[in-house]
Design a protein around this nucleic acid. Sequence first.
DNA 1: CGTCCACAGGAATGACGGGCGG
DNA 2: CCGCCCGTCATTCCTGTGGACG
Length: 440
Amino acid sequence: MKDDNNVFNKVEGLHLQLKKRGADDPLLEVVERALQRPRIFKDRLVMRSDYIPDSLPHRAEHIRRLGEMLSPSLKLSRASNIFIYGKTGTGKTAVVKYVFNRFKEIAELQGLPLLFSYINCRISGTEYRVLAELCDAIGVKVPFTGLSKAEVFNRFRSALKEKSIILISCLDEIDVLVKNYGDNLLYELTRVNENFEGGGLNIVGVSNDLHFKELLDPRVLSSLSEEELVFHPYTALELVDILLERAAKAFYSGTVPEEVIRLCAAIAAQEHGDARRAIDLLRVAAEICERSGGSVVEEKHVRLAQNMIEKGRVFEALSTLPLHSKIVLTSLYLLVKNDILNSFSGTVYEVYREVCSLLGVEALSSRRVSTLISELDMLGVLSSEIVNMGRYGRTRRITLLTPVDEVEQVIKSDDLLKTLLDHKVNFLKLENFKKYNEKT
DNA sequence: CGTCCACAGGAATGACGGGCGG
DNA sequence: CCGCCCGTCATTCCTGTGGACG
């Protein structure tokens, strides 16, 4: 655990050095300000999202039950597969990791052939990579691409058998995998244990989609969810406890008043009781306070933090979009700038083509753009609604949901698109599109 | 009452870069 | 080196469709 005090001492040392050099040193002022800055954070790591606390308030019951379900593995017999539901930030991942860590310690102490792996299916992304990570967990090296899935699967199974390992694997956000690739992999995985003595695979599936079950084949469902565990969102009061505990470790006493914590908890509770959000909010509020030279976090810092986090999320999501999605977004932006708030897909596509030719980029087919628009819809950047206009066909009415100035920031952060706004935007004859769009 | 618009969105297919084993 | 298998992005072709217009 890194101590802020060390850093502080170093800065102090630097300060003394600089002073010796004379007053005209350009760093002197910066360092002095850094020294004067009141310190709020005692330990920043505690407020990070990947931090696993020693105790999880209001989750003792879940920990106990998960531990019970997995306990047969400590006697080297197979435990049930487990299914965990609950929305984001309800402590699912933390509980699983917590229990895994504790079991791992015991297994190592007793020298049991018991291994644990945690895989996030959304981050791993494909069936192949999930399989590769399972292999990795039991010490089988596989290339990140090149082999057929069946081959990787066979290697996994035979290694499991050969080494008589029991692998308990958590597949987090498992719904993402099934939505994209179906439940084939899960089916195969649940069958791994058939005709096996010693060794085996145990799956702890985690999903934040409550309707996920419906996507599964009944056979898969029955073997996957032999046991179930449901996580409910935290209430505001529970969030307060969580934040208080974290705050006590992360901040110097007296820097974060309880009412600020209550506010953070209340805001997060409104948004589905997401603990991660609550912690982020408090952390950012403290950072803002610290940077502005305050010594006690106040309500206004929380409000600012709330704003910043929201904007940051949007910017992050939009600026990492592939080029053509950004061009579609830009087209929509231009339309909105010209007071066309609801455009039809035909109009958007026309503008899109125009923008592409101005940028010297080859335009994609309208079919492709159509799915790009759907993707933006799913991201919540825009909303599209199918409308029937009889004689005048069937289209989507597309509305930009993101505030224009935020979209503008994203466009300006892209080197290519920036040139469009800077120089070429006048060449667009948007009047034509306006008429085109109003041809209802 | 049937037509027919302007697309939606599914299916099939292909190009491509990456990476294996042999 | 080849042949094969991935996943991703894109195109082409296709069938489907609610309701204003004639």
